[in-house]
Design a binder for these strands. Structure first.
Length: 281
DNA sequence: CTTTCAGCCTGGGCGC
DNA sequence: TGCGCCCAGGCTGAAA
């Protein structure tokens, strides 16, 4: 579950339940996760958890230094927090409930703290975990579109005169870090821009609309705690609700909410793009 | 430089 | 019930 709004949601909620906990032990169940130098974290207190680009950053106080665990969820990575001594599992992306055996199957790493434990569960095993020596060592390739620093002028500068399709460009993490396949489609629909338009063909007004759409869609998705595609149900319902607001993603064959034309699926860079052939030109 | 495209992995859903 | 496809919120690295 991994675009900017989902990662933001996970990081905030993990911070709420885990900040201040002291790390006691790390157990890794997957050889793909080497995590060299992890000893520096033993006995360290978790200062805070925040989103950095598309990753979850766990900042520790290791007595003099502030190393971080940087977790990238990729396609299917999820984080669970199990409170010590309680039958409660916090899943952050979906619900909080009592669940027996959650994460037993694809748990790739477990971090035991004094007040609970953090599980990194990832069926497809694409996710990564690394240790950063300090905040400046975090691996964040591009600009964060949710910050005030991401202005229209900055956006224009990043776009430069690229000849790439705008859809593929929006997925470039070295330019903008955080957008993924769902929000790229939603942003293009909101801005009324066709996904195959070369960046250097965009008018000044279209760039302005795209910039506004990026801000608007992300703000709204974060407010709704991201998009949750999941079979998980609980009495409390799902925390991520933005799936109810998607206008094009995953809606091929459905009518456009604005004009009624059929939403079309297109493949770009081996990824699906959804758009309205009438509204997006 | 750019663009394409296999690969990394597992599982769910669908048609037969 | 099973098999063979296609699909999946990400990204890398090699080839063209």
């Amino acid at each position: 579950m991994p675009e900017l709004p989902e990662v933001e949601t996970v990081a905030r909620r993990l911070n709420e339940v885990a900040a201040g906990a002291v790390l006691e032990r790390i157990v890794i169940n997957d050889k793909k996760i080497a995590l060299p130098g992890r000893k520096v974290l033993n006995g360290a207190a978790l200062r805070r958890v925040y989103r950095a680009g598309k990753t979850v950053a766990l900042e520790f106080d290791a007595g003099g230094s502030m190393p971080l665990l940087q977790i990238h969820l990729r396609m299917t990575g999820r984080l669970f927090w199990i409170e010590k001594g309680a039958d409660i599992v916090h899943t952050f992306d979906g619900y909080v409930n009592a669940v027996k055996g959650v994460g037993r199957k694809h748990c790739r790493a477990r971090f035991y703290f004094d007040t609970g434990s953090l599980l990194f569960v990832d069926p497809r095993r694409f996710g990564t975990i690394k240790i950063a020596a300090d905040e400046s060592d975090l691996d964040i390739p591009g600009a964060d579109p949710s910050t005030a620093a991401f202005t229209l002028a900055v956006f224009r500068e990043l776009l430069a005169d690229s000849s790439q399709n705008i859809k593929l460009w929006l997925l470039r993490q070295d330019k903008i870090t955080g957008l993924g396949n769902i929000y790229a489609s939603e942003i293009l629909f909101d801005a009324g821009v066709h996904p195959e338009r070369p960046v250097n063909s965009l008018t000044s007004d279209e760039i302005k609309r795209l910039h506004r759409a990026i801000k608007k869609i992300l703000r709204s998705a974060i407010k709704h705690c991201g998009t949750t595609f999941s079979d998980f149900q609980s009495s409390e319902g799902s925390l991520g609700e933005y799936q109810n607001y998607l206008k094009v993603y995953g809606r091929a064959g459905c009518g456009c909410s604005d004009c009624g034309a059929e939403i079309t699926r297109l493949v770009q860079g081996q990824r699906s793009t959804f758009y309205c052939p009438d509204c997006q030109v």
